[in-house]
Write a protein that binds this DNA or RNA. Structure first.
Lengths: 166, 166
DNA sequence: TTCTGACTAGTCAAAATTGAGTAATCAAAA
DNA sequence: TTTTGATTACTCAATTTTGACTAGTCAGAA
């Protein structure tokens, strides 16, 4: 329900079309969610069926008609319910990249070290990138701070792993 | 390819049936991967088609026949390739639970604080659980240490967020 | 001995997700 | 002016994932 919460939250601020929503999420929220275009439309369609949003056909000049989505009262209620649920529960994260670490001892220590250093480089690149993101307004600043905090903690841990080899 | 790497790595140690693989992963690796039974069978079937593993019909006593999966030479090669790829790259994690935080300012500070404290409790429970997991042998110990390190870092961050409200 | 609940070993149809399109508009270069 | 490339707004078929079964075995209780 996290992606639904996000879509409702954005539509709460202003009516938008699916394409706009997808673009915004991909540009600004890619650190929290990965939402492909067809999935966005699929979710929006389901939310229309649930009565959380309305579809409105919009015709602008001689451009082809577009579909605008608009929050309903029920959508507003659902937004608040999902928001409370989301904030009150800790969602445990799966670290799929740890699978390799579980088999680290099948490699020569030298090679393991070299590969982990390659990983370290790409982690440092991500961290540097994240630190360059300019200050946002309001709560969405929290999302960036969380990302930076996490990447720093990952770097610490990776350094510990590398130093322990041999 | 992470789940494929895991399945190959387990089959490398010993032949197993799909059910066994699924049970093992769910009991011991649930911190890294979430692999449902039908998905496990689906992946195994695909790996048979790719020539990474063989299917063998096994008949034990008068029990119904079972399918045992066995690594091929190609599977062994693929395991090493996937392992190197996995270790050398940093897979960025998506924090789906941050979506709520992006809308934190739509709530009253008092309520936000209360909800975040509920989240904190469930995080502490997870951390306590993780710290109770007994020492494992070899590299899989790393997976547990990573989990604990991450949960501690999350707790630190959550406390910072809570203290900043108001 | 027969019943019950738990464990083993899967399968299947339905739901969710995605890569790879289409088709229109517009701005700017050739 | 024609072409080219980028942007907007979607769609569809194919792939992947899942909840909810089925069906056999076994150990112990009634």
């Amino acid at each position: 329900m996290d992606r639904e919460l996000l879509l409702l939250g954005l539509l709460r601020q202003e009516d938008m079309h699916g394409y706009q929503l997808h673009e915004f999420i991909n540009r600004n929220m890619s650190s929290c969610v990965d939402l492909k275009k067809p999935t966005a439309y699929y979710l929006l369609e389901k939310m229309v069926e649930s009565g959380w949003i309305n579809e409105i056909q919009e015709q602008e000049g001689n451009r082809p008609p577009r579909t605008v989505f608009q929050l309903t009262n029920e959508g507003e209620t659902t937004f608040h319910r999902l928001l409370r649920e989301n904030i009150a529960t800790y969602h445990s994260t799966k670290f799929a990249d740890d699978i390799g670490l579980a088999f680290l001892d099948t490699l020569e220590p030298e090679e393991a070290k070299a590969l982990l250093n390659t990983r370290r480089e790409s982690l440092v690149r991500e961290l540097t990138q994240a630190q360059l993101i300019p200050q946002h307004s309001g709560s969405s600043q929290l999302v960036i701070e969380h990302l930076v905090h996490h990447l720093q903690s990952e770097l610490e841990w990776l350094d510990k792993v590398i130093s322990k080899i041999r």
